[in-house]
């Protein structure tokens, strides 16, 4: 069978990886539009600290992940919308969380492998519980995202116009960051806190250059994300080396190709 799908761990990897790719693509597209990449980066590291803390207390790392990322998401959302101010606040939260993360690791030296797993992901080490949890959370995030889609799209493109039409821009921002916290939380154990951008930012960044409508960008980002995940797992299975490395590498390559080729694909006649 292809991809080693006869093994349960490979089925889990493909299924959970696909779910995470599918939720990361649209979330990441909005993260780019809203210029919140730094917030996404911080959330993944906050998630690392949460997971390390949970491991220390012999709890499921997911408990720590969700608790830490959701709590700091509320904090981040309250920082306001001005990018400069926001980035300073995010930097502070990130710094504090990483300090805690180091402490937790320091207190719990017995299992360094668990820490490595959180930092770099272990896509082929996913249990079936983890797989269903990831898929369920991904589905939930996608449903809420679809429900707030139109106001979110307008608020991300033109905040003033959205306010003028009565869109609750502030509340929408809070909901979006909470969704982002959930999406990041399920991605961290699978793709890794340090490699979160390979599915969250890489595919939307490439899609943004190639697609000229928001919906086209979302669809393309999802396709690229799936291709990267499957390609990464396949390469890891057939060739070797960690799947996270392959996914990040493919993500980088696709972005380079898109950034280089995208402008050249555009029809020039319209100019």
């Amino acid at each position: 069978m292809i991809l080693g799908l006869e093994y349960a761990f490979m089925r889990h990897a493909v299924f959970a990886g696909s779910a995470i790719a599918l939720v990361s693509a649209p979330m990441g597209y909005f993260v780019l539009l809203r210029r919140q990449a730094f917030a996404a980066h911080a959330l993944s590291h906050v998630g690392f600290a949460g997971a390390a803390g949970a491991i220390l207390l012999s709890l499921s790392p997911y408990l720590g992940l969700f608790a830490f990322t959701l709590a700091s998401a509320v904090g981040l959302a309250l920082l306001g919308s001005r990018v400069g101010e926001r980035d300073v606040g995010i930097g502070m939260v990130l710094m504090f969380a990483l300090g805690l993360g180091v402490l937790f690791l320091n207190l719990y030296t017995a299992n360094a492998a668990a820490a490595i797993g959180i930092l770099f992901g272990s896509i082929v080490g996913i249990s079936s519980t983890q797989m269903w949890l990831s898929a369920g959370v991904a589905l939930g995030v996608l449903v809420v995202l679809a429900l707030i889609y139109r106001p979110l799209r307008l608020a991300s493109l033109d905040q003033d116009a959205a306010r003028g039409r009565g869109v609750p821009v502030g509340a929408l921002g809070v909901v979006f960051v909470l969704l982002l916290a959930l999406a990041v939380s399920i991605s961290v154990p699978v793709i890794g806190a340090l490699l979160i951008f390979s599915l969250l930012i890489g595919p939307p960044a490439a899609a943004r250059v190639l697609a000229r409508s928001v919906e086209g960008g979302l669809l393309l980002a999802a396709l690229i994300g799936l291709a990267e995940t499957w390609g990464g797992i396949a390469a890891s299975y057939y060739i070797g080396y960690p799947a996270s490395t392959w996914i990040a590498g493919i993500s980088f390559l696709i972005y380079l190709l898109a950034a280089w080729g995208g402008p050249r694909l555009r029809p020039r006649a319209a100019r």
Binding site: R34, R150, R153, L154, L157, R165, S213
Partner: peptide
């Protein structure tokens, strides 16, 4: 000005995003 990250969108896509933008749900 429109946000920097939306500059790849076509004019028609950016205008379409404003159509009934206050309504919930996916168009």
């Amino acid at each position: 000005e429109p946000p920097e990250m939306s500059l790849h969108l076509s004019a028609v896509a950016s205008v379409a995003a404003a159509f009934q933008g206050e309504r919930w749900g996916f168009p």
